[in-house]
Amino acid sequence: MGLFSKLFGKPKQPMPQPQANMKPETGKSHTKVCKVAGVTFGNRQECLKRLRTDKQAGKVINVSMQEYSYQGEPAIKIIANGMEIGNLHTEDCDFIKNNQSRILGIKDLYIGYAEDIKTYYAKITLIIQNKT
């Protein structure tokens, strides 16, 4: 049973084809970067600003993913230091659900700022075990 199966109690599903934003599989694991969607909803911009400041100051940011249902469809929200900062895109949710047993953890939360549109954005980097 995989990491998310244990967390969410869901059975494993068939593996999808590799995604374009994944690094090649070399060694024992590789990474996949996922954009966080919905970062402008509600107070999420303020949360991202606070988290970015904390991260730049060297403070630890605890990141987790939580599955839920949105309009009857499975979704995964991203929570950082107890604050909901957004959701994964549908294709990334599908990838995670289909590869639960291979997800080893979250390597990084990147928070950037697009100066031209004055908006914070986020990406998470997942560590994924290579296929054996």
Rank of each mutant, 00 (worst) to 15 (best):
S69I: 08
M22W: 03
K107F: 04
T31E: 09
I117H: 08
F8I: 01
N62Q: 12
A122D: 02
T26P: 00
E115T: 14
I78C: 07
Q66Y: 06
L88D: 04
K23V: 00
A122F: 02
M1D: 01
E67S: 13
L3P: 00
V33I: 08
D54N: 13
P11W: 04
L88S: 03
G86I: 00
A75M: 09
G86C: 05
G2M: 01
H89W: 06
V63Y: 11
I127M: 12
C34D: 03
A20P: 03
N81Q: 12
G27E: 07
N99W: 07
L104P: 01
L51N: 02
D108L: 10
G38P: 06
Q56I: 06
A114H: 13
E25M: 10
T132M: 07
M83L: 06
H89T: 02
K123I: 00
N87S: 12
Y110L: 05
D116F: 12
R102I: 00
T125K: 15
M83T: 02
I117E: 10
M65Y: 08
K118M: 09
T53M: 07
E84L: 08
Q13A: 09
I78Y: 09
A75D: 09
S101N: 15
T26Y: 12
V39H: 12
R44D: 00
E73Q: 15
T26G: 04
S101W: 08
I79V: 15
D94H: 14
P18M: 04
H30G: 01
K97D: 04
I61N: 11
L126C: 02
N130Y: 09
N21T: 02
K12S: 08
Q17A: 11
K131Y: 11
P16D: 05
R50W: 07
T90P: 01
P11T: 08
N81H: 12
M83I: 00
G82V: 08
V60E: 15
E84R: 15
F8D: 07
F8Q: 05
